[in-house]
């Protein structure tokens, strides 16, 4: 299997002197195409820093990230935003939907930003799979938390990106909704051959993953989890 994501000696340091914090220390690992990777670790361990670096939302102090063969931190901001909307899908803990746009618009937003015409049958299929077909004209604040997170999953899948990054997608949800969302993510990843990296607090969801990475005090270790 081809590696879609490779990190080399990724480091991130915040602050200087006494307030200096090493959020990430020499992280080197790779993720293969189609893999579902769970990232676990206590709060403050550097999970979110890692994910932000992988998604090019933040710049590392040193080190490299290759996504789909491209060194993302050598790209200019302008190219990077295009690269991001085509190749990376984000799912946040707080959903971060655009409150003024309806469900369908939120899902196709990355496509619209790319001036592409959405593939109607694919979007309808996505809405179906996510159980949102009935609510495509609803606004985010008319939906439950679970439904909102499903919209966010739809948005991440809309462009068929190379990789999807999810930062505690179940953090704001109850147990039932959390389980639904995680299994839906798993389903989508398999169905559309996506690569998913998910941060989670909940150890029980690691069973869904192909591989588990643990982050502790900024150090990333491969737990050699339940590899298929």
């Amino acid at each position: 299997m081809m590696d879609i994501l490779i990190t080399e000696n990724l480091c991130k340091t915040y602050g200087t002197g006494e307030t200096k914090v090493d959020a990430l220390k020499n992280a080197s690992f790779s993720v293969a195409k189609g893999e579902f990777v769970a990232v676990v670790g206590p709060s403050g361990s550097g999970k979110s820093t890692l994910l932000n670096l992988l998604g090019a939302l933040d710049t590392p102090t040193s080190g490299k990230v290759f996504l789909d063969g491209k060194d993302i931190f050598t790209m200019k901001e302008k190219d990077l935003s295009v690269f991001r909307r085509r190749n990376i899908g984000f799912i946040f803990q707080a959903y971060n939907l655009v409150p003024e746009l309806n469900v369908e618009e939120n899902i196709i937003l990355p496509l619209l930003l790319d001036y592409r015409k959405p593939d109607k049958s694919y979007i309808d299929e996505l809405l179906d799979v996510l159980g949102l077909a009935e609510r495509k004209h609803h606004l985010p604040n008319q939906l439950s938390g679970g439904q909102q997170q499903r919209v966010a999953i739809g948005r991440a899948l809309a462009t068929r990106p190379a990789i999807i990054l999810a930062d505690e997608p179940t953090g704001n949800l109850d147990t039932k909704n959390s389980r639904d969302v995680v299994s839906l993510m798993k389903l989508s990843v398999e169905r559309y051959h996506q690569t998913l990296i998910m941060i989670t607090h909940n150890q029980s969801y690691t069973s869904f993953a192909d591989r588990v990475l643990s982050v502790e005090d900024g150090v990333v270790t491969d737990l050699e989890g339940v590899r298929k």
């Binding site: 901001e77 302008k78 935003s81 946040f92 655009v98 937003l109 930003l113």
Partner: peptide, 15 residues
């Protein structure tokens, strides 16, 4: 925050 999310989703600076 809203504008940050837009950028994360892939909105370019010009957009």
């Amino acid at each position: 925050r809203y504008l940050g999310v837009m950028r994360a989703v892939g909105m370019s600076g010009a957009q």
